[in-house]
């Protein structure tokens, strides 16, 4: 083994520069992509998103990438979402609903199992989950499953877990800001030091492209609705 091969490895990095070999899916937020290894959400890896509460825009941060991934023939799997993913908003954000898979396991253990199966299967491009317990061994398994299935794993977890070690390849922490703002701190990333926070605008009306694409229909419903106003 020579030095070059060692440096090419995904788990080896040199301080001060981001590893260029990582495979990633652009997040759709240019400022964010510059600080993410490989220029986007890492493929075949677990991303942990820590947030203080629901409703601050964590999903909006993922939506552009999910819209792109939904063009693949693979599932976007949501395991035990805390609320109903609202179909009209997903369509508005450009996500192809025929690729959306919702899994509602009864028990927590079944939830972890479902996440692991989905990540490992190779038939999911992304798996989103909201695990409630802090189980490091389970997370380690999920990271390995994401590698095996070449999937993007996203775990949404409460911000209080920030001090707990995690096997996730990427850990970010979110804080709400005024207006549509969101501050993003990178706590851990492959091939780079922690950094941040950076400030993003995550508009409520997600994906400009998708809206433009469907503007004809949108006007149609709008005019129908005006009869009632």
């Amino acid at each position: 083994m020579n030095l070059d091969t060692v440096l090419q490895r995904a788990d080896v990095w040199r301080g001060g520069r981001l590893s260029a070999t990582a495979d990633a899916v652009a997040s759709g937020f240019a400022e964010l992509d510059t600080v993410l290894p490989g220029g986007g959400w890492p493929r075949g890896a677990l991303t942990e998103i820590l947030m203080p509460q629901h409703g601050i825009g964590a999903l909006r941060l993922l939506v552009p990438a999910l819209a792109r991934l939904s063009r693949d023939e693979r599932w976007i799997c949501w395991v035990a979402p805390p609320y109903i993913p609202y179909a009209p908003a997903l369509v508005g954000a450009g996500i192809d609903l025929s690729r959306v898979l919702l899994v509602h396991p009864g028990a927590h253990q079944d939830g972890l199992w479902a996440v692991e199966q989905s990540l490992r299967s190779g038939t999911c491009s992304a798996v989103l989950a909201w695990p409630t317990l802090d189980d490091r061994t389970a997370l380690r398994r999920l990271q390995l499953a994401a590698e095996a299935g070449d999937a993007l794993g996203f775990l949404f977890r409460p911000g209080r877990l920030v001090q707990r070690p995690s096997p996730a390849a990427l850990r970010i922490q979110l804080q709400p800001e005024a207006g549509n703002g969101l501050s993003v701190s990178i706590l851990k990333r492959r091939g780079g030091w922690a950094c941040g926070p950076i400030h993003l605008e995550v508009p409520v009306h997600g994906h400009g492209n998708a809206v433009a694409l469907h503007s004809h229909t949108a006007t149609g419903t709008g005019s129908f609705q005006s009869q009632w106003q």
Binding site: Y83, P88, A89, S98, R99, H205
Partner: peptide, 18 residues
């Protein structure tokens, strides 16, 4: 699964519904 239909609303809608 796989048979989701794409009706478009065009209004501002939240990603989570209660």
């Amino acid at each position: 699964p796989g048979q989701g239909e794409q009706a478009v609303n065009g209004q501002q809608r939240p990603l989570w519904l209660l």
